[in-house]
Design a protein around this nucleic acid. Sequence first.
DNA 1: GTTCATGCAAAGATTTTGCAAGCTG
DNA 2: CAGCTTGCAAAATCTTTGCATGAAC
Lengths: 153, 153
Amino acid sequence: MSTHAHSHTHTIEDIVRIMSSQGLRITDQRKTLAKLFAESPGYLAPKDVYEYMGKSYSGLSFDTVYRNLRVMEELGVLEQVVFEEGVKFKLHCREHDHHHHMICLNCGKTYPIMCCPMEQTTAPADFRIVKHKFEVFGYCKDCDQEEAAAAQS
Amino acid sequence: MSTHAHSHTHTIEDIVRIMSSQGLRITDQRKTLAKLFAESPGYLAPKDVYEYMGKSYSGLSFDTVYRNLRVMEELGVLEQVVFEEGVKFKLHCREHDHHHHMICLNCGKTYPIMCCPMEQTTAPADFRIVKHKFEVFGYCKDCDQEEAAAAQS
DNA sequence: GTTCATGCAAAGATTTTGCAAGCTG
DNA sequence: CAGCTTGCAAAATCTTTGCATGAAC
């Protein structure tokens, strides 16, 4: 496997279409949000989203960001992952190709791991499995080189 | 594998010894904390700890609970896991038998999974792996029966 | 025009920090 | 007794909620 960033599940248009079909109004902010997530290769914290959006909307408020993140998560457009530093969001991956991720601790980019450990895990008869989480953390090629360069100087 | 609760790594005495050897003072509260974690089969949220401790110490303050949880985590006595509902703590498992857990979503008890998915995961040459997380969530035998019984009534 | 979205302010919830008083070793 | 611990209070985060104004359909 080579280190190519994870390909995106949705385009801006897809996201807007899903929101619209659910009766949500398509505001400028939501279009910008769709654009942001469609173009972001990694996980974004609410603060990241707020800062990005703030560039375009001077009077932006944090609660609107949260509300929209929640709505998009409920629609299945975004998925939420809990890191030690707090929750982060990224586009939800298609379900039909279930997989896990390697996540760069520096830039947040994700890379797919196609094999699922549950296949090897023998489920005991008396434990009813509901869900699982498998995440690998480290540094991607670019960030590792950056760090090495910084250490030298 | 059968569903026997995970055996404990430390006894109360072990925990007290570790704290003492690190120069920490052994207060009543810390003894009670050691007892609580030595006897708890599952993960505990700070609030759980606060409520349990509060039974014995009327003027207990939340910040002391947090401080002690942090200290015990730094000593390696406790391990912290981030759930959707917030952080939780349990006794740290011995390192020499690296493994993962099945975690009951109802009672928080954990059951060991002895095989580690990293053995099967081919690490790409250009991604430097630092750590990984593999957790399986579901319901243990007891809690599953409880739920089934509740659904019938 | 009706309904939903937004900004503002305020409230909640969780976790951390400074400081004086008390306890441990 | 010296220094770590604790409780109290306050602060710092992070997230949610109520309400009036404004925008989308």
